[in-house]
């Protein structure tokens, strides 16, 4: 009991994010006229890229920085992917690997500029973001490219469709209805995040985010931690780019979209309970943070026009309510401001 209470108190942000998501999604499910696995699939499709970009942002926020290049990097990988993933069969696998490598390499470059150039992350990534967007425009001056339709369809669908498309397996019953998006997420979390969290470097990232000087004095390899965090951020942003490519089937160097993803990623990180000052939180919270953001827009879609709340169903009002909910959510964290005895403790 005591351990449970301790665990909850220690992960309050995560617990709140999960709670908020469960409540919002339950509202959505209860209002949806014909809810089913296909709706989950559609939701997953709309959420996954944002989740992955949010995870990328989380890595940099954890070490006390901010990454303004996650959106442009996703766009760059999208444009790159529309070229290297355009073949068929085995070449697609190579293309996906190349995309992941490009993401990680760009993240590593961000890290090098921050670590060895000693430029603040927010500014360094503002500049590299422009560079990545430029490279994306260079690869795809106009939207275009076409990746293999079967591949794009099969890997953004559920387990059954994956089997049908390639003739790997027949109908697997309820198991086959599970969408692939949650599986991708679980794979990334189990294979990348959880092992990383347990290494000395992973713990070091938290230490660096809490206090760089203290981490240095304790013998944490600061540079290695920062480089790894940025590289992982690039990798996650690259995964988002790959998924986007599969989803839209082509490459598009869309600057407004890149900027929107970057700004939204900050919101997902904060709602997911990661401190913008660094040192606490994690990508699992961010997953739920992104789901909270997406659930809000899902709900607006299914509010019946005739109900008492029908007026909010207007798509024109949606951005407004999204902003208000975001403001309320982040202001809730301000409750401590009114409880502190010594106002000096506010200036951390």
């Amino acid at each position: 009991m005591k351990t449970l209470r301790f665990a909850i108190a220690h992960n309050l942000g995560l617990v709140l994010a999960i709670g908020l998501f469960v409540v919002l999604y339950a509202i959505y499910v209860s209002m949806h006229p014909n809810y089913g696995m296909n709706v989950v699939l559609q939701n997953g499709n709309e959420a996954l890229a944002l989740i992955l970009v949010g995870m990328a942002q989380t890595m940099v926020v954890l070490i006390g920085g901010l990454d303004l290049s996650v959106g442009p990097l996703m766009t760059l990988v999208n444009c790159f992917g529309s070229i290297v993933m355009a073949g068929t069969g085995g070449s697609i696998v190579l293309g996906v690997i190349a995309c992941m490598a490009l993401g990680a390499a760009c993240g590593f470059m961000n890290g090098c500029i921050v670590v060895y150039g000693r430029i603040q992350p927010i500014i360094a990534t503002l500049a590299t973001g422009a560079i990545y967007l430029g490279l994306a425009l260079f690869l795809r001056p106009t939207p275009g490219g076409r990746i293999d339709g079967d591949f794009a369809w099969a890997f953004t669908n559920d387990i059954n469709e994956l089997g049908y498309t390639y003739g790997w397996w027949e109908d697997l019953g309820w198991f086959g209805l599970i969408p692939l998006q949650p599986i991708y997420l679980i794979l990334i979390v189990v294979l990348v995040w959880l092992p990383f969290r347990r290494t000395a470097t992973g713990r070091g990232c938290y230490a660096v985010g809490s206090s760089e000087a203290a981490a240095f004095m304790s013998g944490v390899k600061i540079n290695r931690c920062k480089l790894t965090a940025f590289t992982l951020a690039g990798f996650f942003a690259g995964c988002a780019g790959i998924y986007l490519t599969m989803q839209i089937g082509s490459g598009n160097a869309d600057a407004p979209q890149a900027a929107e993803y970057t700004l939204r990623s900050i919101a997902t990180v904060v709602i997911g309970g990661t401190s913008l000052y660094g040192g606490s939180g994690g990508v699992i919270g961010t997953i739920f943070g992104a789901l909270v953001l997406r659930s809000i827009s899902f709900i607006f879609r299914v509010v019946p026009e005739s109900s008492a709340l029908g007026f909010v169903a207007s798509p024109l009002l949606q951005p407004f309510f999204e902003g208000v909910i975001l403001l309320i959510a982040v202001s809730l964290g301000a409750a401590r401001t009114f409880r502190v005895r010594n106002r000096l403790s506010l200036f951390t």
Binding site: G117, R118, I119, A130, L133, L137
Partner: peptide, 27 residues
């Protein structure tokens, strides 16, 4: 081209900051 303009713009920011705005080493 727009692509190269973006790249040069980013590179200039990094380059100029490398010259005069480097942070201190934490030690």
């Amino acid at each position: 081209e727009e692509a190269f303009r973006q790249v040069i713009y980013g590179a200039v920011i990094i380059g100029m900051l490398l010259i005069y705005s480097r942070g201190r080493i934490v030690n």
